[in-house]
Amino acid sequence: MVRLPLTPAEVERGQRLGALLRRARGQRSMLDIALRAGVSPETLRKIESGRVATPAFSTIAAIADVLGLSLDALWTEVNQAERMVS
């Protein structure tokens, strides 16, 4: 399967997602959050840094659950800047 390059909007959305997750994690250990969510610390690091702009839904759902974030609130905040530009 060939994966198409990400659009600038997708890259920006991934960066906003990563920043939001990083803020929500606060001072908690990346290792602890990753293990509790069932993902590797490297995966969480890449998502938080914006290097994985389009992570799998199940991965985000698991991380959001551990961080106590609602998926609705997460989706709204990540996409809010996009709507403001449109």
Rank of each mutant, 00 (worst) to 15 (best):
V2E: 14
V2L: 13
L4I: 09
L4F: 11
L6S: 12
L6H: 14
P8Q: 08
P8H: 05
R13M: 05
R13K: 10
G14R: 05
Q15V: 12
Q15A: 12
R16S: 08
G18R: 07
A19K: 07
L20G: 01
R25I: 09
R25E: 07
G26F: 00
Q27R: 14
Q27S: 12
Q27M: 10
R28N: 06
R28V: 02
D32H: 08
A34N: 10
A34K: 08
L35S: 07
R36C: 05
A37R: 06
G38P: 08
S40M: 10
S40A: 15
P41V: 08
T43L: 15
T43W: 05
I47H: 02
I47A: 01
E48L: 03
R51S: 11
T54G: 08
A56M: 13
A56H: 13
F57N: 04
F57R: 11
F57C: 07
S58I: 11
I60N: 00
I60E: 00
I60K: 01
A61N: 12
I63D: 01
V66A: 03
L67H: 01
G68Y: 02
L69K: 02
L69N: 02
S70D: 13
L71E: 10
D72W: 09
L74W: 00
W75D: 07
E77Q: 14
V78N: 00
A81Q: 11
E82S: 14
E82N: 10
E82K: 12
M84C: 07
M84I: 10
V85I: 10
S86L: 09
